[in-house]
Nucleic acid binder design. Structure first.
Length: 928
RNA sequence: ACCCCGGUGGCGGAAUCGGUAGACGCGCUGGACUUAAAAUCCAGUCUGCAGUAAUGCGGGUACGGGUUCAACUCCCGUCUGGGGUACCA
């Protein structure tokens, strides 16, 4: 009986489907376990062998947990809204709903080949109205909420209104605009529009005018993390700053909790680092400097310039101030003499695109003519404008300390501003030194203090004098939440006379209307603005919001919907989310570090605050799978000819390098016939061979269409079977590591499965398994394997688990063991890795129920108990011999045995030993 | 520029807490079976030296130092590959 994988795999996939083997109930006595994959965006290109890596890992773990007695939730769905489908529609005239559907069907087929244990009854698609109804609903919850800084949580904005009515906003400073201050009386006097405007500055989902990343080519706004080096992440188009009306999420209010939450979840250090860098918390002070009045507009001595600094200890080293080109006060403080120069400079800054600013960081700036006074020594400090100070961070103004800050130093040098040295020998006059360890000089009351201490002393003094205050700042900005795009969730919002009104929950979902042709609306509006009837169809009157939500909206909460996917009364029943709770294991790539993984954490916290769920971190543990690289094949064409030369001879010619499709290369040898048939232009190509073969060059690079190095999992499964494919992907190396794909190596794993099969059935002899009583040696092999597989699986070390199976098989082959009592438990161990072949053999052993529900074998230490060990014996740390010693031998006995050993005596050369290090069960080291 | 992660045979990688470096697999070499091939099986495979051999001795985990009885593992510095951030005061 032969191992016919394609027959076996199809049969069991069919059976599992028919018997609903993967259906998961929300009602179970067993402990729960939630294993989640980052759901894919169904792109038109389909899957290559790199994509399923994480899915296989999670599938193995889900199956393992199930065997271990857990009720395991392991769902899959599609992140179906997004730019590429829309771009494809524009380019090819195919509706995004149609192309997305096709792509999903294709994905599904590819996934099904691999034999995953997803409960497909729970499939979700973010573009499904039954799903995005709840995305819109959550948006409304955020819209109706504000972040109470006293309780540090989201609360209904209706509560805030009650407070305003009673006592104004003194206790709740406005996060959107800190200059908004009012009493209860004033509040009562505002009309509805004014009140709505004020509340908008508090809402967690809010609309405002702001500088946004505008991409002309895509006709949309992009979030910061969708912009890479001044161009769009998708497509690489230029991005400029533009002021537009946009929706935002007030994620900055959650900065501290997002930071704090990292301590309670298992993410890799690298991931946590990325998130906390992105949040960018810094401690410092805001300090106000009084202006020196001048004969321009700045006549009042009351005016103060407030700066943010992390180094208040350097306040005596301030030689100039710099404000951002967008700073509100520029007009007021500029002197008549400098007016022209300042205007010219602002014009110059505006003319520079984001890209130019990034590419050439030129030192530029202009003097305003104004001065501020150092609050401690009254020194006059000139105020400059420069683009290196950002309007959006801190107060948009800095105090420049050239001896301690590199940028300030360069600026001072460039404009010949005299530099004050407050750190003595730590400053060499050539470059700034940002040390905190120098003893301060030229620093008034701070003289003689170490900078670290002076930081505290100076802030205390500033606070005492009322000219400064401790201040925490974050780099993170509020997240832009609207896109001028078609293929996304419409907002449940209507505009009336410039005021945004939410739709009632009963109006949801706001269905995405059909659109014949997708093209941008006027003046930065989205394609939906081209549908006037729809725009005017709001149930509360006014005009509908024409932009749509960004890609991360649907993915911010999808893990909750899987728990209760068909509920049309609520996004997820509270009882159900209480049962499943957090995602126990989340597997996906690192590329979502500062996007999806931050947004979903924020949404979870908001939903928790508002009492809709019972946990405030979505993912308990995150594993980042590495990328699988492509192994490209290269051929060399003699320049200007149609002649191709084998790699070993290419240096004798002047050649051009071309990629050749990996599927027509065996190892490094090109299938010349397949190549000449591949394209008309190669039909009469000629070849210079080595040893009768055309040998290709090779290079490791990203797997992608343009390198012709894409390996389709379908082909691998067809040739070797899903079980081999699954195990080989795991065998390649640690899941978290990037690694190259090598189709050649798969043979080894395939041989393993075939050989494993032969423990049960032989092609010639037929059944070879038997019911004989196993020996102790055989039990030892089994239990050693149980122990190792369990340990390796638990720590996601799937590559070593596969090798453990191989070692076990080699041992059993050596022992000529075909005994059912050994083989049957082994099948269960192997099931998570290779479910099809194990199910087949399980049934052939006479079992009637599925191996999916088998009991996981219990490790019994008694089979591994040893009385002796072959100890490695070193002399001065160098291994010299091994001696078999009883494990329970006391130190004295071990010393006696070791010191009397011939080999050891030889190496001791008659010298006395200083001591003997004996690590029980490990080794012995004699020190002389 | 700053921050993070990595660097081990021809290749993918193993060594889980500082305790016999190179497990397992690929590839390669030789052999068995075969008319032949495939498949399968057996043996060898970090490196230098000595030996017919069993084996013995030395070197070796990017490089240079250090800690330790003992370092792939910990510390300092350098080189190098990858990722993140991008004037954040």
């Amino acid at each position: 009986m032969e191992y016919k994988f394609s027959h076996i795999e199809k049969k069991w996939q069919q059976t599992w489907k028919e018997t609903n083997a993967y259906k998961v109930s929300n009602d179970s006595d067993r402990p729960k376990y939630y294993v989640l994959d980052m759901f894919p965006y169904p792109s038109g290109a389909g899957l290559h062998v790199g994509h399923p890596l994480g899915y296989i890992a999670s599938d193995i773990f889900a199956r393992y947990k199930r065997l271990k007695g857990f009720n395991v939730l392991h769902p899959m769905g599609y992140d179906a809204f997004g730019l590429p489908a829309e771009q494809y529609a524009i380019d090819h005239g195919i509706h995004p709903a149609v192309s997305t559907d096709n792509n999903i069907n294709n994905f599904r087929q590819q996934l099904d080949n691999i034999g995953f244990c997803y409960d497909w009854d729970r499939e979700i698609r973010t573009s499904d109205p039954g799903y995005y109804k709840w995305t819109q609903w959550i948006f409304l919850q955020l819209f109706h909420s504000f972040f109470n800084r006293q309780t540090k949580k989201a609360e209904p904005i209706a509560e805030l209104v009650k407070v305003f009515e009673k006592e104004g906003n003194a206790a709740h400073p406005c996060p959107g605009d800190s200059s908004i201050k009012f009493t209860a009386q004033l509040w009562a006097g505002f009309d509805q529009a004014q009140q709505m405007d004020i509340l908008m500055e508090y809402r967690l989902a809010f609309c405002g005018y702001g500088e946004v990343n505008w991409c002309e080519a895509l006709g949309t706004v992009l979030a910061n993390d969708e912009v890479i080096n001044g161009v769009s992440e998708r497509g690489g188009f230029p991005v400029v700053k533009k002021k537009l009306r946009q929706w935002y999420l007030r994620i900055t209010e959650y900065a501290d909790r997002l930071l704090e939450g990292l301590e309670r979840i298992e993410f890799s250090d690298a991931m946590k680092e990325m998130q906390s860098n992105w949040i960018g918390k810094s401690y410092g002070a805001e300090i106000s400097f009084a202006f020196k009045p001048h004969d321009g507009k700045l006549t009042s001595a009351e005016a103060k310039l407030t700066v943010y600094t992390t180094r208040p200890d350097t306040i005596f080293g301030v030689d100039f101030m710099v404000i951002a080109p967008e700073h509100d006060w520029i007009e007021t403080i500029t002197t008549p003499d400098q007016k022209q120069a300042v205007e010219d400079y602002i014009a110059y800054v505006k003319s520079r695109s984001e890209r130019e600013r990034m590419a050439e960081k030129k030192i530029s700036g202009v003097f305003t003519g104004a001065y501020v006074l150092n609050p401690f020594d009254g020194r006059e400090i000139p105020v400059w404008i420069s683009e290196y100070v950002l309007a959006g961070y801190g107060t948009g103004a800095i105090m420049a300390v050239p001896c301690g800050d590199e940028r300030d130093h360069k600026f001072a040098r460039h404009f010949n501003i005299p530099i004050t040295n407050i750190i003595g020998g730590h400053y060499n006059g050539e470059e700034a030194n940002p040390t905190k360890d120098a003893i301060l000089e030229n620093s008034g009351f701070l003289n003689g203090l170490v900078m670290r201490e002076a930081m505290v002393v100076s802030i205390d003094k500033l606070e005492e004098l009322g000219i400064g205050v401790r201040k925490v700042n974050y780099k993170m900005r509020d997240a832009a939440f609207s896109r001028q795009r078609y293929w996304g969730e419409p907002f449940p919002i209507a505009w009336k006379e410039g005021v945004a009104y939410p739709l009632a929950e009963s109006e949801l979902p706001v269905a995405l209307p059909d659109l014949e042709e997708i093209k941008p609306g006027v003046e930065g509006e989205g394609p939906l603005s081209n549908l006037p009837e729809w725009i005017k169809s709001s149930p509360i009157g006014g005009e509908r919001e024409s932009s749509t939500m960004p890609g991360y909206a649907g993915s911010s909460w999808y893990f909750l919907r899987y728990m209760d996917p068909h509920n049309d009364g609520t996004f997820c029943d509270r009882k159900v989310s209480d049962y499943w709770g957090q995602v126990d294991l989340y597997i996906g790539g690192t590329e979502h570090a500062v996007g999806h993984l931050l947004y979903s954490r924020m949404w979870t916290k908001a939903l928790y605050d508002l009492g809709h769920i019972g946990f405030d971190e979505p993912f308990k543990k995150l594993v980042n799978q590495g990328k699988i690289g492509g192994d490209s094949r290269l051929i060399y064409r003699v320049r200007g000819t149609n002649e191709f030369v084998s790699v070993g001879l290419k240096d004798q010619y002047e050649t051009d390098e071309l990629h050749v499709d990996v599927t027509i290369v065996d190892g490094l040898e090109l299938d010349v016939e397949a190549f000449t048939n591949s394209r008309a232009e190669y039909a009469n190509a000629t070849f210079v061979l080595e040893d009768g073969k055309y040998i290709c060059g090779s290079r490791l690079e990203k797997m992608g269409k343009r390198y012709f190095n894409v390996v389709n999992p379908d082909d691998i499964v067809a040739k070797f079977g899903a079980d081999t494919f699954r195990m080989y992907e795991m065998f390649l190396g640690p899941v978290e590591q990037d690694k190259p794909w090598d189709t050649k190596g798969i043979e080894g794993v395939h041989r393993f499965i075939k050989k494993f099969w032969r423990l049960f059935y032989d092609e010639v002899k037929g059944q070879v398994w038997n019911t004989e009583q196993p020996t102790d040696a055989e039990f030892k092999v089994l239990h050693r394997t149980i122990k190792k597989i369990e340990e390796d699986t638990e720590r996601f070390s799937f590559n070593t688990a596969v090798s453990t199976f191989m070692i076990c098989l080699n041992d059993l082959t050596d022992l000529k063991c075909n005994k059912k009592d050994i083989l049957q438990p082994l099948l269960v161990l192997l099931t998570p890795y290779a479910p099809h072949v194990t199910e087949e053999l399980w049934q052939l052993l006479g079992n009637t129920s599925s191996v999916l529900n088998a009991a996981y074998p219990t490790f019994e230490p008694k089979y591994l108990v040893e009385s002796n060990k072959e100890y490695p014996i070193s002399v001065n740390g160098k291994l010299r011999t091994t001696i078999n010693i009883a494990l329970d031998a006391p130190q004295e006995d071990v010393e006696r045995i070791v010191l009397s050993n011939d080999v050891i005596q030889k190496w001791m050369e008659g010298k006395p030993h200083k001591r003997v290090i004996y690590v029980k069960g490990k080794m012995v080291n004699v020190v002389i």
